[in-house]
Amino acid sequence: MNNALPAARTTPISRFGWLLADAWTIARRDLQHWRQQPGAVIVNWFFPIMIALMFGLLFGGAIAMPDGASYFEFLMPGMFAMTMFFGLEATMIAVNTDAAKGITDRFRAMPMNAAAVLLGRCVADMISSAIGLLILMVAGVLLGWRWHGPLTAALAAVGLLLLLRFAILWIGIFLGLSAKGPESVASVQILIWPVSFLSNVFVDTVTMPALLGTIAQWNPLSSTATAIRQLFVNPGWRGQAWIIDNAQLMAVVWPLILIAIFLPLSVRGYRKLGR
């Protein structure tokens, strides 16, 4: 009854082609999820806008900027960086759910390249985050945020944001594969907020106690936030520390370090799943 079977699965020439095709098939799964459950993804995309409004309007009045600069213009780049970081949660939950439900095992027992599954996850999450970022930027513009530099610099800033997201993605895959179950996922979720606060996303680190301020400065999130504030020419109280002066460099170096650590760990975790 099954004569219509795929004959050539792995002619070497097409192996890379199949990798891309399989990755796209797996990524498309997420797009289908969005269509089936539009509520969840829309909340996900609009949640950062709510945070921006909350901090910008409710707390913003109490935060005095030097030289009368606009707090909102300071805040929005921080929000962009934070949104990339928040993607951690989505990636981790998706990866962990698939592992727990046995879908990952089903993929692993199929004759496809392991990379296709991970690449599919990357593509889906990058698309989602790019859309989320776009929505937040549009909302920011509507609410009065502007970039003042050249368009190329603004695009470079977007590039840095997506690079950060890409790095976070591998942390998410690693944590999602390592988490024993929904409980461990939840405990990581709780930590996402303090990590965001312990950065210069919302306020300048000079206003923090010395030690915490230093930690916050070295937070990869801060480097990206500072770098894109510079590129967008938005206010961003320059400090004196090396890490701040070299923010644009570090906004590239940090993600690369994270990728160098977590990409191999994720691949190993995927192979060793279930030990």
């Binding site: 795929p6 095709a21 399989d22 797996i26 999820h33 439900k101 046995g102 879908i103 095992d105």
Partner: peptide, 27 residues
């Protein structure tokens, strides 16, 4: 492989699942 616990995507429809796995089997 048919595992002990149904390993299918719960959000997608049955048909979407079958098509996805069909595509991954390179149909």
């Amino acid at each position: 492989l048919v595992g002990q616990y149904a390993a299918i995507d719960e959000i997608m429809s049955g048909r979407q699942n079958l098509i996805m796995f069909g595509r991954l089997n390179h149909l």
